[in-house]
């Protein structure tokens, strides 16, 4: 019952976010600030992780194809498929749920604890629109992050495959081009937009409705990471079944 009630509260929160919009002049600056915090501020960690994940996928694929009948271009092929279909959209989203999600929960939670949200409400500001809407808009740029993660991941795989002596550059590139289905990229971007919405709203929900003091802010950030990850993993399955199944 508690879970159902939380889902209901979350749905009501999402509806409120789109009501009574804040003045555009103010909203524009809030959106730009959130793009800086949530998107630009996450680029470093995403590039770093994607590069090494791509490399690891290439090495592990290479080490599992000892049979001489299997072509070496499979390394590039497997790296491309793994990175585009799963690692770039889903793995990156889990990282973002930790990095961005805990930031969102703790910042909104701190505003709740220090009565800043009450101050907004007393002034007649729709605090949900003011706090959550810019985050949702900023996170709609998330597919660009995923695109960069795809590129860097595949580049990492190429570096590990070629310089690790597992594949020639020509074989790797041939594998990258083999049986390429453009819809897989579309599928990945659709998933990333859905995950972006989840990363912006689920942590906001946990921060906005938290009760207590500083200790509870920390707890709320942890709970929010767990639930954001759970929702991402479930939706990943559902979307994959719907679009590729």
């Amino acid at each position: 019952m508690n879970y159902l009630s939380s889902i209901g509260s979350y749905a009501i929160m999402v509806r409120e976010v789109f009501k009574k919009p804040t003045k555009w002049r103010i909203m524009r600056s809030l959106i730009l600030k959130e793009i800086d915090e949530l998107i630009y501020g996450s680029m470093g960690i995403i590039i770093f992780i994607s590069f090494f994940i791509g490399g690891v996928v290439a090495i592990q694929t290479a080490l599992n194809i000892s049979n001489p009948l299997i072509p070496r271009n499979l390394i590039g092929f497997a790296t491309r498929q793994s990175v585009i279909l799963e690692f770039a959209p889903t793995f990156t989203s889990i990282i973002m749920a930790g990095k961005v999600g805990s930031y969102i929960t703790s910042s909104i939670g701190t505003m709740r604890v220090t009565e800043q949200i009450d101050a907004l409400e007393v002034m007649g500001v729709n605090s949900l629109n003011f706090l959550v809407f810019p985050k949702i808009v900023a996170m709609m740029l998330y597919p660009f992050v995923v695109a960069i993660a795809m590129y860097v991941g595949i580049f990492g795989g190429w570096i590990a495959g070629v310089f690790g002596g597992f594949s020639s550059s020509a074989d790797f590139v041939e594998g990258l081009q083999l049986d390429f289905i453009p819809f897989h990229v579309t599928y990945s971007f659709i998933k990333s937009i859905v995950f972006a919405f989840i990363i912006a709203t689920v942590p906001s929900y946990h921060g906005y409705y938290m009760k207590g003091g500083a200790l509870e802010v920390g707890k709320a950030a942890t709970v929010s990471f767990v639930w954001t990850s759970v929702v991402i993993i479930i939706l990943n399955y559902v979307l994959t079944q719907l679009m590729l199944g």
């Binding site: 220090t114 009565e115 800043q116 009450d118 101050a119 409400e121 007393v122 002034m123 007649g124």
Partner: peptide, 12 residues
Amino acid sequence: RQEMGMVFQGSA
């Protein structure tokens, strides 16, 4: 609400 001013305990 726009005609109300509020000073919170912790200033907010």
